[in-house]
Nucleic acid binder design. Structure first.
Lengths: 199, 199
DNA sequence: GTCTATATGGCGATAGAC
DNA sequence: GTCTATCGCCATATAGAC
């Protein structure tokens, strides 16, 4: 436990913001989670909005860049997609509330994402070229690669975002049964997506 | 415009709550949207939570029952799924923020969903049987039907929930291009899901 | 039923002691 | 750097005139 006070605040804020969002989070709750006084949060980050933006920007770029990196890697279409599924399911499993957090906050205030992408120097147009060309690999399939990526992301994220509902309706609210379902998800989605891109 | 005051309040509340959620909504904003004084909201609904629950329960059961109805209909697997996609895309297109609203609020307070399902007399266990058996139709496919339904819902909902991000990254922030993408979605998902369940 | 005015509590933020 | 105490504001909710 040799973390600095600033790190403790940041990590507590990250946990609470990701769970409850900007609107649902109270500075007092972050202070409690960090085990210190509310005034210290303002001493280190000046405002709730500042603290939130620090959390959002880190969280967003981490998740976003992983999609990017995997899709520009070398290899066949199948290799790229299976590698992506492998990595991304693990990432979501370790951070199950992050995708929904990102989606919510972007809908609440799209400007935060846009300034973040600007600061990172990301060129939107490049993303499409990366998807269609790839470094020396064949095309992603005859389908519009954007439909493939959107379908894939939806299939991977929805079981986590919709967990309380799905667990209740399809698994009689049994958490263990739902964990089992989630652990099958990687192979199931791999098979589905490979069938989808077959000619 | 012969709506009652209560109806005007309810419809204004529905618009705002669905856009901004329980935490992000102010009673003043609902009053402005309804074109009347804030005190009237409390006169008719007593509290913000009451008003919210009225909106949530209606919205939830409408969307939920549509999944249910379509999946218990007669017909082959393909018929069921294509009918479902047809209907659900239109439903989301007319209410693009509703799925995300439902998911968010259920995560925020799962109890609201549970009491709602209890009041509606929905038996969770029945849902699974409906999926696997269906009224006189063959089985949904050799795959676990829950994986199919979860994938399908993810593929349909994600393009709407993630719109600001996806439109920015893959469509250079061009709304018209994204609308075009959404209008292709119905056929694309039909083709994908039918390939997925092929033997 | 509908309004204005106000009570009440909570939250973000700051002042100031240590 | 860290705490206690408090300010100022805003949000829900209510009181009371019309």
């Amino acid at each position: 436990m040799d973390k600095t006070t600033e790190e403790k605040i940041y990590e507590a804020a990250r946990r609470i913001f990701i769970l409850k969002g900007m609107d649902g989070t109270r500075m007092q709750e972050i202070a409690d989670e960090a085990g210190m006084n509310k005034a210290l949060l303002h001493y280190y980050f000046r405002s709730k909005e500042n603290l939130f933006k620090a959390v959002f920007k880190d969280t967003f770029s981490k998740f976003f860049n992983k999609v990017r990196e995997t899709l520009i890697s070398d290899g066949t279409t199948s290799d790229k997609l299976t590698a992506f599924i492998e990595y991304y399911v693990d990432l979501i499993q370790a951070n199950p509330y992050v995708p929904q957090f990102i989606i919510n906050e972007i809908n609440r205030d799209p400007q935060v994402m846009k300034s973040q992408m600007f600061e990172s120097g990301i060129e939107p147009q490049n993303i499409i070229e990366l998807l269609t060309k790839g470094k020396g690999s064949e095309k992603l399939s005859k389908m519009d690669p954007r439909h493939i990526v959107v379908s894939l992301l939806g299939m991977l994220i929805f079981p986590f975002a919709g967990r309380p509902l799905l667990q209740m309706v399809y698994f009689n609210d049994d958490p263990e049964a739902y964990n089992q379902f989630l652990s099958e998800r990687k192979e199931v989605v791999k098979n589905m997506i490979l069938k989808m891109i077959e000619e």
